[in-house]
């Protein structure tokens, strides 16, 4: 057991910086994912046929391509003159990948509100905007929170792919590997990195679960 603590004591700065870089990767990608996902979801529910089709193609493409392929396309695929750095390529790939799932989550959240409610609101004399603001969005927000939380958990795990691929961003996994190479203590360094990931994913799971209970709508 001694070596375990020794590795942590001597390399705590590396692990911590890796931990925060992982957090930052997830945060930036999540912002990209929510922004793009909302736009695509709006396309998907728009009353215009060709917008719907563009949204549909986006969702089906980005969900079905492995994240690693997307990272490679973004990192190697752009002309050198654009000079896309590893951070931009990595967060764009993860963000656009997750955006496809977020778009579908948001779309199904809008449709989860019964059509009867919308008709009722409109016939009560509410304008389209008021219906959206007071009837649809508050309810769809609640149905959308648990799946969004699940996507954040998936993002935390997927963010490790960015650091492990050709991009070489020193995230938690990368720092674990560096420490393992330096100290030759593979098990101990991977153990602490694993703990970092478990802290993130299990906390997120617990938060999602309690939100799910609190926001549950009894229909």
């Amino acid at each position: 057991m001694g070596e375990f603590w020794e590795v942590l004591r001597q390399h705590l700065p590396e692990f911590l910086s890796g931990f925060f870089i992982t957090c930052r990767l997830v945060a930036i990608s999540f912002v990209i994912a929510v922004v793009v996902g909302t736009i695509i979801a709006a396309f998907r529910v728009a009353p215009v046929k060709w917008l719907q089709r563009i949204g549909g193609i986006y969702v089906e493409t980005f969900r079905n391509i492995p994240l690693l392929v997307l990272i490679f396309i973004f990192y190697f695929g752009f002309p050198e003159t654009l000079n896309i750095g590893p951070w931009l390529a990595g967060t764009m790939a993860l963000g656009l990948y997750t955006a496809a799932y977020i778009a579908e989550t948001l779309r199904s959240g809008v449709f989860a509100v019964g059509k009867g409610q919308i008709d009722a609101a409109l016939s009560l004399g509410l304008t389209y905007r008021e219906t959206l603001q007071k009837i649809i969005l508050p309810q769809s927000f609640r149905t959308v929170i648990p799946p969004l939380g699940n996507l954040i958990i998936a993002m935390i795990k997927n963010s490790a792919i960015i650091g492990a691929s050709a991009l070489a961003i020193p995230d938690l996994l990368k720092s674990g590997r560096i420490v393992a190479a330096q100290t030759a203590q593979t098990l101990a360094s991977f153990f602490w990195a694993a703990l970092g990931y478990l802290i993130l994913t299990i906390t997120a799971t617990l938060v999602v679960r309690s939100l799910e209970k609190r926001l549950a709508i009894r229909r």
Binding site: S108, A112, P147, G149, N150, L151, A154, T205
Partner: peptide, 15 residues
């Protein structure tokens, strides 16, 4: 099952 994107997909696809 929580924490997996393609399980979220299944959930949203069929609604």
């Amino acid at each position: 099952v929580t924490g997996l994107e393609d399980q979220v997909r299944l959930e949203t696809d069929t609604k």
